[in-house]
């Protein structure tokens, strides 16, 4: 499709999807992949920094606070550019845009997830920690058998929000030239001269993906729910 055909929007969408669908799928999968990488990495970072913040030393708390402030207090796009360009300059280590993007998303999401996990860990009240101690449980046993099973359940609703927010934020990866859904849409819009339909279509994909994912998380939440364990954090 080299010139903009005078088609009505619906017919146009059908025709461009037919023509460009491999790229759209590629873009969508990259978006999903980046979201999951960011969430998974952020999950580990989030739990560790929450544990460090609740149970750690003064120094650990300061380091964690600095990390969280940096990532929550600056725009994601700036973070992406910063890591992509400054790490090679500082360390001589060269990395591709995809790795730089994934790592930045992990760090960024970890900073947000830390807050959710901290709330969830603190919702496991001190009296239960004392009870675990009185049974002779070690710190690690208390963590695996008392704190985490509760915190992981409590954290599902806020974590769902983080999923939505991070999933939509992956469009910022366009600044690194990563071929995710927004970037692909921009190329198609530029080639077809029909931004309205192309971006509308892209928005619909984001919307469907997020809505279905949220339904799945809600289902998981209901599935693992325990009476009396609902806590608002």
């Amino acid at each position: 499709m080299k010139t903009a055909a005078p088609l009505d929007p619906i017919s146009f969408i059908i025709s461009f999807v037919t023509e460009y669908y491999p790229f759209i799928i590629e873009g969508f999968l990259t978006t999903v992949e980046m979201t999951f990488l960011g969430l998974a990495g952020g999950f580990v970072l989030g739990i560790l920094s929450a544990l460090g913040d609740v149970y750690g030393t003064k120094l650990m708390k300061v380091i964690i606070a600095g990390y969280v402030e940096f990532f929550r207090g600056s725009p994601l796009i700036v973070q992406l550019l910063f890591f992509y360009f400054s790490i090679p300059a500082l360390t001589g280590l060269n990395w591709d845009a995809f790795t730089a993007g994934a790592v930045t998303l992990m760090l960024n999401s970890g900073a947000y997830q830390k807050g959710y996990f901290k709330g969830a860990i603190e919702a496991v009240f001190k009296d239960q920690l004392m009870a675990a101690k009185s049974l002779g449980m070690t710190f690690r046993q208390t963590l695996t058998h008392v704190v985490l099973p509760q915190a992981l359940r409590i954290v599902i609703p806020p974590w769902t929000n983080e999923y939505v927010s991070l999933g939509l934020s992956t469009s910022a990866l366009i600044v690194l030239g990563i071929r995710e859904l927004t970037n692909i849409s921009k190329s198609i819009a530029a080639q077809t001269f029909r931004p309205l339909e192309v971006y509308l279509f892209a928005s619909a994909i984001y919307f469907l993906w997020i809505t279905i994912s949220m339904k799945i998380f809600d289902w998981i939440y209901e599935k693992v729910k325990i009476p009396g364990l609902e806590v608002n954090i």
């Binding site: 009296d127 675990a132 009185s134 008392v146 325990i226 364990l229």
Partner: peptide, 9 residues
């Protein structure tokens, strides 16, 4: 304990 302090999960 004074409060039951049961593991809620």
């Amino acid at each position: 304990f004074q409060e039951p302090s049961l593991f809620r999960h």
